[in-house]
């Protein structure tokens, strides 16, 4: 019998946390109770930013972390935040193919830090929020203060002429309410769950990047598992990944519908507007390829081959 400890920075009733519960339940069932997972949710043990190091050092067995948290050490890990690289759920699903070039390159890169990727957790596309008018043209970003989540999203804002201000998730609501920044940035479902629509009345469906979480396990620990255990873990991970991918698309569409149902003005981009945004954001893709080196280039090429 073996117990694995997992740290999650959100609550177990949040889709990302619930998905770890799905993994734990599946693993217990398929291993006939041989393997169990103890889940420590709500960042009781580690904040997201601490997870890469905590898992690599063996302080904790398994951790959930936003892929961008690796982007300091591995600039190419910011690939999910590169603007307009993932145009649709289909492209993401193809990129996630375990035998595909993108997935292999990405997971091997994360593995080089002593953390093996178990599965990906799609949380959905990221949108821009604003007050008074939708942001259909990139020129509307000129000179605006814009919430950024970190370096990769900051590069995007730079590229389109805005000024990035890094604001954490918990201060987001007040920053929008009080106008600390002019433009917000958030996943579609979070606009609903964090009540951001109360303070930002326009959601522009730019879908400019993805909030992609990855679940990582300590490399040495995984190597020490028996072949049977490895098979169980891998299978449970794939079950969890698939179930969330299906839910996420539905959840995001439901949130968008709910928002447009009298809670906010939801504006999709026309193909021409999208093209203008992509052109304006091009310098950020160049920055990514420059910082990410060969790996960055490989990842971008692998994605573009899937369009």
């Amino acid at each position: 019998e073996r117990t694995l400890r997992a740290t999650v920075q959100v609550a177990v009733n949040h889709p990302i946390g619930a998905n770890v519960v799905t993994f734990a339940d599946t693993l217990r069932d398929i291993s006939g109770g041989e393997m169990t997972v103890e889940i420590y949710d709500s960042a009781q043990l580690f904040k997201g930013s601490e997870v890469p190091k905590a898992v690599a050092s063996g302080a904790i067995d398994i951790g959930v972390v936003l892929a961008d948290e690796y982007s300091g050490t591995l600039p190419a890990a910011g690939v999910f935040s590169v603007p307009f690289l993932f145009p649709s759920y289909e492209v993401l699903a193809r990129a996630a193919d375990p035998d595909g070039a993108f997935r292999k390159t990405f997971d091997d890169m994360i593995a080089s830090t002593g953390t093996k990727v178990l599965w990906w957790q799609d949380y959905g596309p990221v949108q821009l929020l604003s007050k008074g008018e939708a942001l259909v043209e990139p020129s509307q970003m000129q000179g605006k203060l814009v919430r950024a989540m970190g370096k990769p999203s900051g590069d995007f804002i730079d590229a389109v002429g805005g000024t990035p201000v890094v604001i954490g998730g918990s201060e987001q609501f007040m920053a929008y309410q009080r106008g600390t920044v002019d433009v917000g940035m958030s996943g579609t479902t979070a606009v609903e769950s964090r009540k951001l629509y109360e303070v930002m009345d326009h959601v522009t469906m730019t879908n400019h990047s993805l909030a992609e979480f990855i679940v990582v396990i300590n490399d040495a620990l995984f190597d020490a598992l028996s072949d049977e255990e490895k098979a169980w873990v891998t299978e449970a991970a794939m079950v969890a990944e698939q179930s969330l991918r299906e839910q996420t698309e539905a959840n995001n569409e439901a949130s968008a519908d709910w928002l447009s149902d009298g809670h906010a003005t939801v504006t999709p981009l026309t193909p021409e507007q999208l093209a203008a945004w992509q052109d304006a954001a091009a310098p950020a893709v160049e920055v990514f390829v420059r910082d990410g080196g060969d790996l960055g280039k490989q990842l971008v090429d692998a994605i573009q081959a899937l369009y």
Binding site: K53, D68, G72, P75, T113, A148, G150, K151, P164, V166
Partner: peptide
Amino acid sequence: GALIESYSMGRRQPTMLQMPE
């Protein structure tokens, strides 16, 4: 021990400045 690991792996913070950890 942990610092040597950070240094040899080239760990950096995922912020705008990307300062070595």
